[in-house]
Design a protein around this nucleic acid. Sequence first.
DNA 1: TTTTTTGATTATTGTAACAATTATCAAAAA
DNA 2: TTTTTGATAATTGTTACAATAATCAAAAAA
Lengths: 172, 172
Amino acid sequence: MNIRGGKRKGAGRPKGSNLYGEPTQPVRIPKSQIERVLRFVQEREYALPLYASGVSAGFPSPADDYLEGALDLNAHLVREPTATFFVRARGESMIDAGIHDGDLLVVDRSVEATDGKVVIVSVNGELTVKRLRRDKGKSWLLPENPDYPPIALNEEDETHLWGVVTNVIHPL
Amino acid sequence: MNIRGGKRKGAGRPKGSNLYGEPTQPVRIPKSQIERVLRFVQEREYALPLYASGVSAGFPSPADDYLEGALDLNAHLVREPTATFFVRARGESMIDAGIHDGDLLVVDRSVEATDGKVVIVSVNGELTVKRLRRDKGKSWLLPENPDYPPIALNEEDETHLWGVVTNVIHPL
DNA sequence: TTTTTTGATTATTGTAACAATTATCAAAAA
DNA sequence: TTTTTGATAATTGTTACAATAATCAAAAAA
């Protein structure tokens, strides 16, 4: 009986050499959701294929030629869940910014509301979407529709800035 | 020592009286993700607040007055993960449908491509977005931009219908 | 009688524990 | 120098267990 290896420092399977690089712990999951959860842990549950349009593909596998990768909407559109919320747009005042009545806006509180950003603001109790213009210490809320007038923000207005619109989701 | 209850049918905690209404099973989860997974199992990980714009709010809690509920983008935009994919739009040919260069399109294979739907098609090796028009047995692909010409689909064209665009995601 | 308390019973739950597996090292063999 | 082998220790899927929770019906109280 030969002696190989031996009890020594550095022997054995290294710590963190598992799938996740960190210790795991058993957690009870409802049986029907186990597969879904395992995909989720590996961030694949909603990682769906993304293709590029406007490009030409050859053969034999055209689909692969268009493929750009995989994308998860939540991961892509929601940088920080605690700083993100949605607003349902109403009216046509921002039509030229591509915001239609009924569209869903993704809003990020953690983005700084600088000049030119499209923002969600409550003005005198009403929640609205407008483009923010800041110039020489004054602020305006600009609609993107010639039929609507710009709004100058005065000291006496009860305004509160909610966040910056990062994406517009438009149902067809 | 009194006898209460007794061994009998119907005694004891009922099956399915747990949080999920079904049996659970321990699954190993990396420690740092346990909280995230538990939220996910209850479908709350990305359930973010949705507010309504264009409405007036009172006091003392204006935010609650705007609140419409909670929304998860994946659940809202992806009806069936296996039938859904994304396409990156290129060009301005669908500008009047609200599709800009660089927009992300959510595409559903399981939606029937009827007359009037915006579809993803590969025509002679190129992947494009157009509105489908079907009339009297003929099919056209219509751009939504007066600068672009309609495309008649002929028998000899190598066309393949990929799916129907359900949503346009436009970054600002 | 009606309501509340109590004990019996069984499902659920979080975690410890186990055997099987896997990854690694270094000595031995080729 | 390269390959094989045995020792070692982390990992993994699952089982097992004690503590907890939910329910029923008898007993006690009102």
